[in-house]
Amino acid sequence: MKDKKEKSSNSEFTPKVVGFLCNWCTYAAADLAGGSRLEIPSSFSVVRVMCSSRIDHNLLLTTFFKGADGILVAGCHPGDCHYGEGNYYARRRFAQLKKVMETLDLDPERLELVWVSAAEGNRYAEVVSDFTEKIRKLGPNPMNSSTRF
């Protein structure tokens, strides 16, 4: 299922991407990327949560309804979660949510879950840039403002 939007006219489009980052790993990686002065797309917005498991359907769907073009959820590598198993739960919820997205005509590709450790500043910058680029190619969130709340 793909968004029914023209993609050729997207070169000027700046996607709004929200990143929910776990405090213990990915947020630290983002700090490291900052310390190394790596470039992060300015349209990417970080929202800090304590653990990737804090994300739920409501939070993510609402973020799409509010107009996000893409959402990146990033946490500790499997097995590294500061709270034991949170990221496994995050992964499970993700799988379910992707299905829901399809029924809403939202390309599941707009949502991504990645693991970035605190040492991976470079990787963080790459992941964010790549994801933002992917969303740029996908075009704007097809839920136009009238269907948003």
Partner: peptide
Amino acid sequence: NEESFPNMECSTCMVAP
């Protein structure tokens, strides 16, 4: 160490906090 055995956990994540 990037990662520590036996769980191959990211050492920085383990130690930085």
